[in-house]
């Protein structure tokens, strides 16, 4: 299941509700506001704040 643009239009960061970008090659969804990175595991985005890599 690939991530598609329509899903990405809807998705926001659950911590700050900022817009997100999908970094396909790194299997990561990156918040463009707060910088949290959410993993994508086996095609499923893990949009849980406690699973996110904190902003650098």
């Amino acid at each position: 299941m690939a991530l598609d643009d329509r899903l990405l239009d809807i998705l926001v960061c659950p911590a700050c509700r900022g817009a997100v970008e999908h970094k396909d090659r790194r299997h990561v969804i990156l918040c463009t506001e707060c910088g949290r990175r959410y993993p994508v595991r086996e095609g499923i985005p893990v949009m849980l704040v406690e699973e996110a890599t904190p902003p650098r």
Binding site: M1, L7, P14, R17, M47, L48
Partner: peptide, 16 residues
């Protein structure tokens, strides 16, 4: 499409 998330903190934009 399936995703992991919490109902109390949805990863969706307002009115989306």
């Amino acid at each position: 499409r399936l995703l992991l998330g919490q109902a109390e903190r949805l990863p969706f934009a307002d009115a989306s």
